[in-house]
């Protein structure tokens, strides 16, 4: 199993991560070695085996749909670096 630096670029783009050249080479080697090791999973017969997404059966609890106070807006905005008029400010995304 080999993950090329080009595949690393593709994955990094999906994950929105800037990588430098050194990281590209390193992750290419390391991900290849890790996935090689993981090939052993292919020897396990899993036909007719359902996947496990939750270990404890989900109970889907219900509650009354009532209005409750939420956290104060200034507390939630308080951790952002750029806030204007009670909103997060970002560069334009539409021309």
């Amino acid at each position: 199993m080999s993950i090329t630096p080009q595949q690393v670029d593709h994955i990094a783009r999906l994950a929105r991560l800037d990588l430098n050249e050194e990281e590209r080479q390193l992750y290419s080697q390391q991900l290849s070695a890790i996935l090689d090791h993981f090939q052993q999973l292919q020897e396990v017969v899993t036909e007719d085996i359902p996947p496990t997404f939750q270990v404890i059966p989900s109970q889907c609890p219900l509650r009354v749909d009532e209005v409750r106070p939420s956290l104060p807006r200034e507390h939630l905005l308080g951790n952002a670096v750029d806030v204007v008029d009670n909103q997060f400010r970002v560069p334009p995304i539409l021309e």
Binding site: I11, A15, L17, Y27, Q30
Partner: peptide
């Protein structure tokens, strides 16, 4: 994300994304 995440976190994000 590229600058503030450390090497292991980036490695796992990459592995998981893949």
């Amino acid at each position: 994300r590229g600058e503030k995440f450390g090497a292991e976190v980036k490695r796992r994000i990459m592995l998981g994304t893949y």
